[in-house]
C-alpha cells in the first residue's frame, strides 16, 4: 500500500516537473513582459520584481502612429470573416457528401480528400497573380474570400463525418412529412450540427489567428496589418532595444488562443481527432 502511494506520488511529481519545464519558456515570457528592462533577461525567476506595466503601455502605442487597437481589430475582422466563410461553405458541402445520394458523390469526395494533401505552394503564385490583377492585394479579400469557397478540405471532412452520424430516421420521418432537401438541411441538419459548427469555428479561428504567411503575402499597408504582422515589424524596426514591449504584445497576441482553448477544450479535442478516429 505504502509502496503504491510512493509510486503514485513519484508519477505526479515527474509529470508536473516535465510539464512545467515544457511551458516554462511561455511563463518566462509572461514574467519578462512585466519586468523592468534591466532585470528582464538576467533572471530565470518566474516572478517579476518589481512588477512593471510600462512594457504594455509602450507596446500598445504600436508603430508609426498606428496602435495595437488597429492590429487587433484587423485580426479579429479577418478571423470573423474566415469563420463565417468556412462554416457556410463547409456545412453545405458536408451535407451533400453525408446526406444526398447522387452518382458523382464518391468522385467529388475523393478529389476533396486529395486536395487536403496538396501543399499550398502549388497554388500560391497564380492565386497571387489573380488577386493582384483583381486589385485585391493589400485588402482583406484574398485572406477571407477563399474560405467562402471551401478551400480547406479539413472542414468539409469534419462536417461530412459529423452529419453521417445524424440518425437516418430523422430524414425519413421528415421526408414523409413532405420536407425536401433544402428544408431537411435548414430545419434538421443545421441545428443538429451546432457542435461541428463550433469545432470548425474554433479551428478557423486558431489557424487564421496564427497565420503569418498569407497575411504577409497580401498585406503591406501598416493600417491593414494584423497582430502577427505588427509583431514581425516590431522586431525589424526596434531592433534589440524594446524586447519588453515586444514580449508584452506577444503575450497579448496569445491570449485569444488561450481563451478559446479554455472555453472550448472539448470541441478542440473533437476537431483534432475528427480526421483520424472516425475516418
Amino acid at each position: 500500500m505504502k509502496k503504491r502511494m510512493w509510486k503514485n506520488a513519484l508519477f505526479h511529481i515527474l509529470i508536473i516537473l516535465t510539464g512545467l519545464s515544457m511551458v516554462y519558456p511561455l511563463l518566462w515570457m509572461l514574467r519578462s513582459s512585466f519586468s523592468d528592462r534591466t532585470k528582464m533577461f538576467s533572471s530565470v525567476s518566474l516572478w517579476p520584481d518589481p512588477i512593471v506595466l510600462s512594457n504594455y503601455a509602450e507596446g500598445w502605442r504600436g508603430l508609426s502612429g498606428i496602435t495595437f487597437s488597429t492590429f487587433f481589430l484587423n485580426s479579429f475582422l479577418i478571423v470573423l470573416l474566415v469563420m463565417a466563410g468556412t462554416v457556410f461553405s463547409s456545412i453545405l458541402a458536408g451535407y451533400a457528401f453525408a446526406r444526398v445520394k447522387f452518382r458523382m458523390r464518391g468522385f467529388w469526395f475523393t478529389i476533396m480528400m486529395g486536395t487536403m494533401m496538396l501543399p499550398l505552394h502549388v497554388k500560391l503564385v497564380p492565386q497571387y497573380i489573380v488577386f493582384y490583377k483583381l486589385g485585391w492585394v493589400n485588402t482583406f479579400l484574398p485572406l477571407a474570400v477563399p474560405s467562402f469557397f471551401g478551400i480547406n478540405g479539413f472542414f468539409i471532412f469534419l462536417f461530412t463525418q459529423f452529419m453521417r452520424g445524424i440518425p437516418q430516421e430523422l430524414d425519413e420521418a421528415a421526408t414523409i412529412d413532405g420536407c425536401h432537401h433544402f428544408q431537411l438541411f435548414a430545419r434538421i441538419h443545421v441545428p443538429l450540427s451546432v457542435p461541428a459548427i463550433i469545432t470548425a469555428s474554433i479551428f478557423a479561428f486558431l489557424w487564421t489567428w496564427n497565420d503569418f504567411f498569407t497575411q504577409m503575402l497580401y498585406l503591406s499597408d501598416i493600417k491593414k496589418f494584423t497582430v502577427a504582422l505588427a509583431l514581425r515589424m516590431f522586431i525589424d524596426s526596434q531592433g534589440q532595444s524594446s524586447w519588453g514591449a515586444l514580449f508584452a504584445m506577444s503575450i497579448l497576441s496569445l491570449i485569444p488562443l488561450f481563451v478559446m482553448f479554455i472555453a472550448f477544450q472539448k470541441y478542440l479535442v473533437e476537431g483534432i481527432t475528427a480526421g483520424s478516429i472516425k475516418g
Binding site: 453545405l92 486536395t115 496538396l118 467562402f148 469557397f149
Partner: peptide, 26 residues
C-alpha cells in the same frame, strides 16, 4: 443529382477557381 451539386456549388467553384486552375497555371 442536381440537389447534390447545388449543395456542393461553392466548393466546386473553389475547386476549379482556387485550386485546379492555379495548379495548372503554376
Amino acid at each position: 443529382e442536381l440537389i447534390g451539386h447545388i449543395f456542393l456549388l461553392p466548393w466546386i467553384l473553389g475547386l476549379f477557381g482556387l485550386t485546379l486552375f492555379p495548379m495548372i497555371a503554376s
